[in-house]
Amino acid sequence: MELILHRFELPLQHTFTISRGSVDVQETMIVELRHGGLAGFGEATTNSYYNATLEQMVADLRRIEPLVADSTPEDPGQFWQQAREELADNPFAHCALDMAMHDLWGKVRGEPVYQLWGLSTDSVPASNYTIGIDSIDVMVEKMQQQAGWPIYKIKLGTPHDLEIIAALREHTDAVFRVDANCAWSVEETIENSGAMRELGVEFIEQPLPAEQRDEMPHVKQHSLLPLVADESCIVEADVDRCAEGFDVVNIKLVKCAGLTPARRMIQRAQELGLKVMVGCMTESTVGISAIAQLLPMLDYVDMDGAALLAEDIADGVKVKQGICHYPDVPGCGVSLLKDGKIPVTE
């Protein structure tokens, strides 16, 4: 196979703010694998919280070009394991490579990845649309501009979180999910759970900082809403660690290193009686199309990344008002609309 790397800047429709920062443009790397006239694509965005830089992803992937050159798209799981030795410290790069391999694998076989896994998309969960932190008036306006979504995920972590939810509730009957991104205390979480349940909130995502995982069983015991692990659930071993303190695990493909380990995490969570969600970063249709292959295995999904963009770079799976629309294309269904090729010298 041939390895080609692309860099893009993804402009957002609105400034996207969570409890620890804001972004207007998201840098992303696209991995392209070519074989026999076909191309598979994968994606990893940069992320300062997880120390994921474009420079390091590119450097690490360049280092495994000999492995790529000697490989064929026959077994994505085996290829993931072979790349593991070199990419163990860079799950974002490993994820993009794994996505591209699955997309190419499906295209070579002429079937969507989810069908090759024996799955059906007849009954799949709807996605939420995420409203970033802003003034209450602006948050209301953002939601109204995206009217018709069945679920909205509201980013919180402000001194007036309950006021935000109450104000948004005046304008829609849709389901709400809230995500504090580690910004609340134990007491805040327990107190907010009751008030937010009355306001039609479905669950609370990552209320406490990840390092306070030992406090989560107490929170779970007293919370009136289900609790979702995000920053507390990064790699496969974290699923077991989350079983006592959370009701749901939110798996991010870039954090766990791709579709291959994500499937194992889903299976383990289900064995433990946890519900499963897969979430996105602010990704293009490349990353969203990979998530879509897992959709039949999930209880919840947050795959609105491409819907948050002012301009996309790829075609593939589309999410419109929460509903996932699959293209009649094998693999993950991805085609790149632009060329952002990074010269080999970089």
Rank of each mutant, 00 (worst) to 15 (best):
P11M: 01
G194H: 15
Q81L: 11
Y129M: 05
A93Q: 03
R169V: 01
K107C: 13
A290C: 08
E187D: 15
C95T: 03
S123A: 13
S284Y: 08
L224A: 14
D299C: 05
G340R: 01
A52G: 08
S22V: 02
E205D: 08
E271M: 12
A290E: 09
E170L: 13
G132I: 00
D247P: 04
A195E: 14
L97I: 07
E111N: 12
A257L: 03
Q115V: 13
H171Q: 10
C256W: 00
T158R: 14
V138W: 13
G245M: 11
K318H: 11
A166W: 05
G106S: 12
G40Q: 03
Y49C: 06
R264F: 00
V23S: 01
D75Y: 09
G333H: 09
L116S: 10
R177P: 01
C256F: 01
D137N: 14
A290V: 06
H171S: 04
K107F: 12
E187P: 07
E65N: 06
Q26F: 00
E163H: 13
D328T: 12
D89A: 08
P66R: 04
A69R: 15
G118S: 09
Y50G: 04
D137V: 11
E231T: 00
V58N: 10
S22C: 02
V124F: 07
A306L: 02
D98P: 05
